[in-house]
């Protein structure tokens, strides 16, 4: 939300810097601040309506279409999951079911949903903390040390970030069993550390680079070693970056399927949410209500986390991908 407030915080630039359509509709009141200062709500609505251009209307239409396209499937699935057994969608269409039934959810919970949620939570918490524990020091080193091969090593890290983990699933079974990690949560967590560290290092290094080195020098003079400097001086300014990396890895770890399926797929008591739901839908073939209910439970935790923290996602997406050397 505040991603937008940031922008709205500079209304003068918005109004005068780029008055879109300034040439086409001359004389239009462009300064929104003066409009909002109007006396009554009705007046304000009236001025706003009067100010609408054709392009505004087109953009509004696009907003509505986009919201419908992106949100509707989720709503439809949620709605489907709440219908009583056997009830089809009635004509005329109603998104809110006339009669709500939780029987589909009961079915999913009986199939082991609690255990899937537990496993996913465990893997996500330990996975994300391990990823941070490994990538924060590495990012610090890439930002604060000058050593031969630094650029080359950074290039290797970037390369690993670009290569899809899907590629390693064929040898993964052999690799994990030779390491004694097959069918263990620890194995999956360590695998996630290996897979997601490059992106995390890359993003965190960017944050470290923005902190002036004078802070390090000052801490050094005060007698701090590097670890103390990191802990007591740098950790606070780099905290937003750590938050972004944590959120990102939470989403990726919670959602990940193919690696988890390969490592844990044959051990049903270790199934994570993605594996559990995939197997569940294999069993319940055409029971769409049950599949819908399973989907809702699987995405709900992420949706809640996301709605609270979405502006950090935006940061992470842009900064993780658009960083030159």
């Amino acid at each position: 939300m505040s991603g937008d407030t940031d922008r709205n915080g500079e209304p003068d630039v918005t109004a005068t810097g780029r008055p879109d359509g300034g040439l086409t509709d001359v004389g239009r009141v462009t300064n929104r601040e003066s409009a909002t200062a109007g006396p009554t709500v009705l007046d304000r609505v009236r001025t706003e309506l009067a100010e609408l251009t054709v392009l505004d209307l087109a953009v509004y239409a696009l907003y509505v279409t986009a919201i419908a396209f992106f949100v509707f499937p989720v709503l439809w699935v949620a709605s489907a999951s709440l219908r009583p057994a056997g009830e089809l969608f009635s004509y005329p269409f109603r998104l809110v079911p006339g009669e709500v039934s939780l029987s589909a959810y009961r079915q999913v919970f009986r199939a082991g949903m609690v255990s899937w949620l537990f496993n996913s939570t465990l893997v996500t918490i330990f996975g994300v903390s391990s990823i941070l524990a490994v990538s924060v020091p590495a990012a610090y080193a890439f930002s604060r040390f000058e050593f031969t091969g630094r650029r080359g090593l950074l290039g290797v890290v970037l390369l690993f970030q670009m290569i899809s983990p899907v590629i390693i699933i064929v040898p993964l079974y052999t690799v994990m069993s030779s390491l004694g990690l097959l069918r263990t949560r620890a194995g999956l967590i360590l695998l996630y550390v290996g897979i997601q560290t490059p992106f995390s290092i890359w993003l965190l290094k960017g944050y470290f680079d923005t902190i002036p080195r004078e802070l390090d020098y000052a801490a050094r003079i005060d007698g701090c070693n590097r670890l103390q400097t990191l802990r007591h001086v740098l950790l606070r300014p780099v905290a937003p970056g750590i938050a972004v990396v944590a959120i990102f890895n939470t989403v990726l770890t919670w959602s990940e399927f193919v690696l988890a399926f390969t490592v844990l797929g044959s051990e049903s008591r270790l199934h994570t949410i993605s594996i559990g739901i995939y197997k569940f839908q294999g069993q319940y073939g055409n029971d769409w209500r049950a599949i819908a209910a399973a989907s809702v439970i699987g995405m709900l935790p992420l949706v809640v986390v996301f709605l609270g923290l979405q502006r950090y996602f935006v940061k992470g997406l842009v900064e993780g991908s658009l960083k030159g050397q």
């Binding site: 499937p73 959602s255 993605s274 739901i277 995939y278 769409w288 989907s295 699987g298 996301f306 935006v314």
Partner: peptide
């Protein structure tokens, strides 16, 4: 963005239901 954070497997299922 909401669509983007839904786990891939579940996206497959959501569209299957759709």
């Amino acid at each position: 963005l909401l669509a983007w954070i839904v786990p891939g497997i579940i996206i497959g299922l959501v569209w299957k239901v759709m």
